[in-house]
Simulated scan of single mutants.
Amino acid sequence: RKHPGVDHAWQLERLRAAAAASRGRFAVRTSDCLGPCGQANIVVVQPSAEGRRKGGRASWVGFAMDDASIDEILAWAEAGGPGVAEPSATLALQLVDPRAV
């Protein structure tokens, strides 16, 4: 409702299709609100087991409002996500510190 020009259903469909194609490497969960409304949409990328062993922590990506952002998030997840792969430079600019919320 906050961003009526954004096709949220399409974004979620893309994320779910990628998760299904990943054969269990990553999953998609939804929430009504994570808090930082001024930086919506927020997507949280959790580290894999390998990523956690390497010190990876959940990363909050803000301003995920378009296909380019979803592409970047999916590419990062495919590359291993937090602790395994660095986010792209563009995605790194979108990271949100959840403690500052």
Rank of each mutant, 00 (worst) to 15 (best):
G51M: 01
G38T: 09
D97S: 09
A40T: 03
E78H: 12
A77P: 06
V6I: 15
A75T: 12
A89G: 12
I42H: 10
F26D: 09
A100P: 01
A77Q: 11
M65T: 13
R53S: 15
R53Q: 14
A92P: 02
I70Y: 01
R16Q: 15
R57S: 14
L91D: 04
W76L: 05
A92W: 00
V43Q: 03
R25L: 10
E78F: 01
V43M: 03
A68C: 05
P87K: 02
A77H: 10
I70G: 06
D97I: 09
I73N: 01
Q39M: 14
R23M: 08
L12E: 09
V101I: 14
E13I: 00
N41S: 12
V6P: 00
R52Y: 05
K2G: 15
S59C: 14
V45C: 10
I73W: 01
L95V: 09
L12P: 02
F26P: 11
D67G: 15
T90I: 06
A27H: 14
G83W: 05
S31C: 09
S22Q: 07
A49W: 12
D97F: 08
C33P: 02
I70Q: 07
Q46Y: 06
L95T: 12
P98E: 02
Q11H: 15
A27P: 01
A92F: 01
V96I: 15
D71K: 04
Q94T: 07
Q94P: 03
G24T: 07
V61D: 05
A75Q: 12
A49M: 10
G56D: 07
L93T: 15
A79N: 03
A79C: 00
V6Q: 08
S48G: 13
Q94I: 03
A77K: 13
R52D: 00
A40S: 13
A79W: 06
H3K: 12
R52M: 08
A79K: 00
L15H: 02
R23S: 14
A49Q: 14
G51D: 05
C37R: 07
G51F: 04
V44Q: 03
G81M: 04
I42C: 06
L15T: 02
G5E: 12
A20M: 04
A79I: 05
G55A: 06
A89L: 05
R16F: 06
R1T: 13
W10L: 14
E50A: 15
G24L: 04
V96R: 13
C33S: 11
D71N: 11
P36I: 05
I70V: 15
M65N: 15
R29I: 04
L74G: 04
L15D: 01
S48Q: 04
A17C: 03
G24W: 10
G5C: 00
R25S: 15
A77I: 04
E86P: 00
D67W: 01
A85C: 07
V6M: 11
V101R: 11
V61E: 07
D71S: 06
